[in-house]
């Protein structure tokens, strides 16, 4: 880039300053969670809270990991969030393909509009009807119930995200594939998906995090301790007369860290995926 040295230096300085501020803003609450998780009860509630811990302890982590069913909750969350992600992607890939390739078909327009409308309903109101529906389907307290519900919430945005990525794949490729005798599904499977892979990964991550963090439906639809997911599992430490901050934070840290690490690891692909999707807007 052709820019003056002065401008470059000011720019770098301003960039680092901005990023440092953002880093503090984003990290502070998380670090405070980690810090609290490492404190003994007497230091958690204090009139003079500090980052420095006089008697650091792993007791909260031990308690969370050994006394309850935390590991089971973790496994359940992995199953539910993973299942919801896989199912939503499968459905959203086709839906996104239709939105991208047949935008003028009446059926596409109708479903597209419905997808958008579905985002406008307050979740509280869906609670009772969905509960009743799940009971009638005999799915209460099953992984399937949560997978289906999270899937429903994720499909609209996933479809629109994927539409964006598919738009970036040139139509000539499809014509060429068709001439080579490749069927439409063959094209999706063999050409479109590999080309849009980074975008699909980004969509998948979005979907996974949303399902991983959901609270209310996870609570209400699961009546079986063995199927309980993480967020409700964390919240039991908020007791009727006392919040066990140490344990609550320890559990939250254990829930957040794997996802955060996952994100850091996939961050490069994520950025690449979103970039291809955003081209030409």
């Amino acid at each position: 880039m052709v820019t003056s040295g002065f401008e470059r230096r000011t720019r770098a300085g301003a960039t680092y300053a901005t990023l440092a501020l953002f880093a503090v803003y984003c990290l502070f609450p998380f670090l405070w969670m980690v810090d609290t998780a490492l404190k003994p009860p007497g230091e958690v509630r204090s009139l003079n809270p500090t980052f420095w811990i006089v008697n650091p302890t792993l007791e909260n982590f031990r308690h969370v990991l050994t006394d309850g069913n935390f590991l089971a909750y973790f496994r359940n969350s992995v199953i539910v969030a993973g299942g919801a992600t896989a199912l939503s992607l499968m459905i959203a890939i086709f839906c996104g393909y239709a939105l991208s390739r047949f935008p003028r078909e009446p059926i596409t327009r109708t479903v597209g509009g419905a997808l958008l409308m579905s985002q406008m309903i307050p979740g509280v109101l869906l609670l009772a009807p969905i509960y009743i529906l799940m009971r009638e389907l005999g799915l209460l307290s099953t992984y399937r119930a949560l997978i289906i519900v999270y899937c429903t919430f994720a499909i609209p945005l996933c479809s629109f995200m994927l539409k964006g990525f598919f738009d970036g794949v040139p139509g000539e490729l499809e014509d060429a594939a068709e001439m080579d005798g490749c069927s439409r599904f063959g094209f999706i499977y063999r050409i479109l998906l590999p080309l849009a892979a980074p975008g699909i990964l980004a969509t998948a991550l979005f979907c996974f995090v949303t399902a991983w963090n959901e609270f209310l439906f996870g609570y209400v639809l699961i009546n079986d301790e063995a199927r309980r997911t993480l967020t409700p599992g964390i919240m039991v430490f908020k007791g009727p007369h006392l919040t066990d901050w140490g344990a609550l934070m320890a559990a939250a840290v254990l829930a957040v860290v794997p996802v955060a690490v996952f994100f850091v690891y996939l961050q490069r692909f994520l950025m690449e995926g979103l970039t291809t999707g955003a081209v030409k807007g």
Binding site: L127, L216, Y219, V220, N223, D224, E225, P232, M235, V236, K238, G239, P240
Partner: peptide, 12 residues
């Protein structure tokens, strides 16, 4: 079969 539920969500 004991289900432990946070008080905040028990009513709902």
């Amino acid at each position: 079969d004991v289900q432990n539920i946070t008080y905040d969500a028990l009513h709902d």
